[in-house]
Nucleic acid binder design. Structure first.
Length: 950
RNA sequence: GCGCCAGUAGCUCAGUUGGCUAGAGCACACCCCUGAUAAGGGUGAGGUCGAAGGUUCGAUUCCUUUCUGGCGCACCA
């Protein structure tokens, strides 16, 4: 035996691969994206799957405003799992990304950022339609800019979609589709015009949305007013008391100018009210507020006559203090005892609550205030032509003179103001367009609400299940849908006004405008005359047109659609118009869309087609921070997608997405993504190890025959089981289960067990030894299948590995791309859960692995005896029944020890100390065959043969 | 205020129709390997299942209340 051990390193088959350990995703992925784009990857995949059954999947449009945030990332990546999962499973799954482009947030932003200072002043001087077009041009530019930005970011997330032909709600053909839907809804009798109170800016003569309001403190005169009952005795009866004079209902308000429009007093039915003498006057006040009222008005003598519930007051009548009318006391649940008297002045034309109360009680929706803030001719003479702010003191003075004013004082409160002019806004009723949810449809007499509830119950499936209750609850309680907005940036509601103020909006007239819009876009509404817009309209053939209609007398009206109506028409404007199939198999959005896109797509579709536009509603929760709190810029806990991509890469972000339980809130933190990165590296390194042992290996078509009791059979069996699990998980949209199955396969089956056990034969067997070749064949199969399974989740990494695999066997190593067709084929065969022409692994394998666990524990405790390296150990297992005998060939590798002996008698596991036995200089094993060879080296039989010595 | 949902080891999650000492992975500790090496392997510690009541022989699992958080809706006359 020589002094120094021979170096047999060069005689080994050591791992070798170009597949790097470090993924370098942040740099590599943009190149992948560019390659996909230049080679037309989306189109070629569509072509490759052209004949396959279609899976209809429709994208909900994000709002084209700002960069994408982590919520978009979650949503788009989940959608991509579906798209790629379907393609990998052999379906044809076209996917058109879309954007919601119209609406207030963009207009608001343009008004703030573009039309400021001098530009804003100049804008104000323009005529209405010129001004609208100026705003619309800027809005369109903004929407286009953000569509471009978001598309770029979405591509960077490695999502697969028809980015060459996206849809946008502002595209002419999309707009035309929306109008066609609207025409059908009108035809079905669902559209009507009605008064509704809205925030109104007098300064700008426009309706304002919540986003355009700023709440500022303001002082207003508050007044306590007595409304005299018309029937004293009835009031007495309500309280079960005798009354000797006319009682009054005392109300309180901070907007005296709304008193002309008072049409009711609201009381809470279960609140207690008092009939009380206050300084001689008999009035009704909520008992809980009596002390405060007394203090406020400074009453000196207080005498409670009787008390009773508000319910008893309902139906009583009172006389308006200065208008010639009698109005009722009504019940309302929202009445509180926080301020005032517990009797609420109700003007249905001047408040949201009041409006609802008015409608519920059949009151007129009366609004004597005009757009310029002045009273109209229906107001008392002394108010006509005065503004509401001039009206306040006039009303108070009138009340004082007629003796109805009990008390007045200035009251400071937070009040909504116009964000631009900083002037206070008022509530004012205006005519708005509605889609009625309780109106019978011409088609079958059902209402939208009935139809919607029926599909929720019968034909839609929900993932997760609770979406069912949520959507049903919302449908049960939703009011009619107000679809009109008084803005510029949107699709006009194509209604025309006759000189007498009546309105033309018939299915035929809408369809005629749709033709114009399809050709020239919705700008046409602002730039063309009614005659041009209605060029294809023939009133004589329109059964709904009024007699003797002359287009020349019509004027355009300028309401636009609620953007939700546009987004809610996408199933028609995209799926049906582009012939992609209808309905969509799934809609996948955040849980906020039960109120939004889910519901507002469903209603038009039910009205137009009679069915919902989707079969399954898949919802995900919201991303919250690591403490479960909402992410927001102001809290400073928001994560930026750009940062995540830069720090971790898209594949790691996608790997993280696939790992979360997406129903319910999703906690997210950089640390979580970093952890996902760790587990990604595990998968990557496993692939790398496999690839590095396939250098120069060319698979021989089919796998070799494999013994069921061999390690290879077990690994192959696990591979197939994993494949079936992953495919089933994708079918159930349970990406997390797929993620876990893949990870466990890589981490346990391969890295911890199979690869560790296979090292010896891979490195030390002769290059062409059948045992080594067999294991390589199985590993080759593992890489192929893993690539196919990983592709929907980690498209970049899967393709990178696929390329490396091709390179290892020298085949198509020059091809820039991946042989997608082969990968897709593989996905298809995998989905069938096939096991190739090899026999299944032996049924005793689970037991063998349990034994392995026991052996490992025994080896651990043997460390105390100084046997620290498993290759210094041998294992004796009692096997009287000969159970382990068939596995004998692989047991030593499986346990990582030098030698395993099966004993015909005895019991248990014994670890033997082999440190005194010679160690093979090549394989480092203390195999029983190790001895000095002809070259002077100390080798085992196998190694001697591999090196070619005896 | 109303509706829906969630609350299990430091973190991400499993826990079938209530039933054996509540399970994984990561992180952590200790050890091995140095021929997957800015890798790989082994062993181990760690939880009164948000809280309080109740039903039951028995509850993480069913009921009630409550706390915390999320989404949606309403409200401030």
């Amino acid at each position: 035996m020589p002094e120094t051990a021979r170096d047999y390193r060069s005689t080994l088959n050591l791992p070798k691969t170009a597949f790097p350990m470090k993924a370098n995703l942040a740099q590599a992925e943009p190149i992948t994206v560019a390659n996909w784009e230049s080679e037309g990857r989306y189109d070629s995949l569509m072509k490759a799957t052209a004949g396959a059954p279609s899976f209809v999947f429709h994208d909900g449009p994000p709002y084209a405003n700002g960069a994408i945030h982590v919520g978009h990332m979650l949503n788009k990546v989940l959608k991509d799992f579906i798209v790629r999962g379907q393609i990998a499973a052999g379906s044809h799954c076209p996917y058109v990304p879309g954007w919601d482009c119209h609406g207030l947030p963009i207009e608001h932003k343009v008004m703030v950022e573009v039309f400021k200072d001098a530009k804003a002043e100049k804008l104000a001087t323009l005529s209405d339609s010129v001004r609208r077009m100026a705003i619309r041009r800027e809005c369109k530019a903004s929407a286009e800019k953000f569509m471009g930005l978001q598309a770029k970011q979405m591509k960077r997330l490695l999502t697969l979609a028809d980015y060459e032909h996206p849809y946008a709600t502002m595209q002419p053909e999309y707009e035309a589709g929306t109008l066609e839907n609207f025409a059908t809804l009108v035809e079905q009798g669902l559209v009507f015009r009605q008064l509704k109170p809205i925030h109104w800016s007098i300064a700008n003569r426009t309706a304002l949305a919540e986003a355009e309001l700023e709440y500022e403190d303001r002082e207003d005169p508050s007044v306590f007013v007595d409304f005299e009952a018309t029937d004293a005795a009835a009031v007495g009866n309500a309280f079960g008391a005798e009354v000797e004079c006319t009682p009054s209902f005392m109300i309180w308000t901070t907007t005296p100018w709304t008193l002309p429009a008072n049409l009711a007093i609201a009381v809470h039915p279960r609140l207690e009210y008092s009939l009380v003498h206050l300084d001689g006057a008999l009035c009704v006040v909520a008992s809980a507020l009596l002390q405060r009222v007394v203090a406020a008005i400074g009453a000196e003598s207080v005498k409670v006559i009787a008390v009773g519930p508000g319910a008893n007051l309902v139906g009583l009548k009172y006389r308006h203090p200065f208008m010639d009318r009698e109005s009722p006391v009504v019940a309302a649940e929202y009445v509180t005892t926080e301020d005032g008297t517990g009797l609420v002045h109700t003007a249905p034309g001047h408040g949201e609550d009041d409006y609802r109360t008015g409608r519920a009680n059949g009151l007129e929706i009366y609004c004597p205030v005009q757009g310029d803030g002045t009273f109209d001719d229906t107001a008392p003479e002394w108010l006509r032509g005065k503004t509401v702010w001039e009206g306040n003191p006039l009303v108070i003075e009138s009340l004082r003179q007629s003796g109805h004013l009990v008390h007045t004082a200035m009251f400071s409160h937070s009040y909504p103001h116009d964000w631009r002019s900083h002037t206070p806004v008022i509530f004012r009723t205006t005519e708005q367009w509605f889609i009625g949810v309780d109106r019978p449809m011409r088609r079958d007499g059902r209402t939208l609400r009935q139809a919607a509830l029926e599909s929720v119950e019968k034909s839609i499936s929900f993932v997760p299940q609770w979406g069912h209750n949520r959507l049903r609850g919302m449908l049960e309680s939703r009011p009619d849908w107000c679809i009109s907005r008084q803005r510029s940036w949107g699709l006009p509601i194509p209604s025309f006004a006759f000189p007498d103020g009546s309105v033309l909006l018939t299915p035929a007239s809408i369809r005629a405008v749709a033709v114009a819009v399809r050709a020239r876009g919705s700008d046409a509404w602002f730039t063309e005359e009614p005659a041009e817009l209605l060029a294809t309209y023939d009133a004589s053939k329109d059964p709904d047109a009024p007699e003797g209609l002359t287009v020349a007398t019509l004027t355009k009206m300028y309401d636009i659609f609620d953007v939700w109506f546009e987004a809610g028409s996408s199933w028609h404007s995209v799926l049906r118009q582009r012939q992609l199939g209808f309905p969509s198999e799934v809609y996948l959005e955040g849980s906020d869309q039960h109120r939004g896109w889910f519901q507002l797509s469903m209603l038009p579709a039910l009205g137009v087609t009679g069915r919902a536009p989707f079969n399954t509603l898949l919802t995900h929760g919201f991303i919250v921070d690591k403490d479960g709190r909402k992410m927001s810029k102001s809290l400073g806990n928001a994560l930026e997608v750009e940062d995540l991509l830069k720090d971790f890469g898209a594949d790691v972000c996608r790997w993280w997405v696939s790992s979360v339980a997406y129903d319910g809130d999703i906690r997210m933190d950089k640390e979580h993504v970093r952890l996902a990165g760790e587990s990604y590296r595990k998968v990557r390194n496993t692939l790398r190890f496999l690839l590095s042992n396939l250098d120069g290996f060319t698979p021989a078509g089919e796998l070799p025959q494999i013994q069921p009791t061999s390690l290879d059979a077990w690994a192959l069996g696990e591979l197939h089981r994993t494949g079936s699990e992953v495919t089933a998980a994708f079918r159930a949209y349970d990406f997390r289960a797929a993620h876990l199955a893949i990870f466990n396969f890589c981490n346990d089956t391969l890295s911890s067990i199979y690869c560790a056990a296979a090292k010896d034969r891979l490195y030390c067997d002769a290059k062409n030894a059948p045992r080594r070749r067999c294991t390589q064949a199985v590993m080759h199969e593992c890489v192929r299948r893993l690539c196919a399974l990983l592709w929907p989740i980690l498209p970049h990494t899967a393709e990178e590995a696929w390329r490396a695999l091709a390179a290892s066997s020298g085949e198509s190593a020059t091809a820039a791309g991946v042989d997608m067709a082969a990968m897709l084929e593989l996905g298809k065969s995998g989905s069938a859960g096939s096991s190739p022409n090899n026999s299944a692994p032996d049924a005793r394998w689970p037991a063998v692995l349990l034994t392995r666990a026991s052996v490992l524990r025994a080896l651990e405790s043997a460390k105390a005896r100084g046997i620290e390296n498993p290759l210094d150990a041998g294992v004796r297992i009692a096997d009287p029944q000969g159970l382990w005998q068939p596995f004998a060939a692989d047991l030593a590798d499986l346990f990582g020890v030098s030698r395993v002996e099966l004993l015909a008698s005895g019991e248990g596991i014994e670890v033997t100390d082999l440190r005194s036995e010679p160690r093979c200089e090549r394989s480092w094993r203390r195999d029983a065959s190790v001895r000095t060879r002809s070259d002077g080296g100390v080798l085992s039989d196998r190694d001697a043969a591999a090196v070619g010595v005896v």
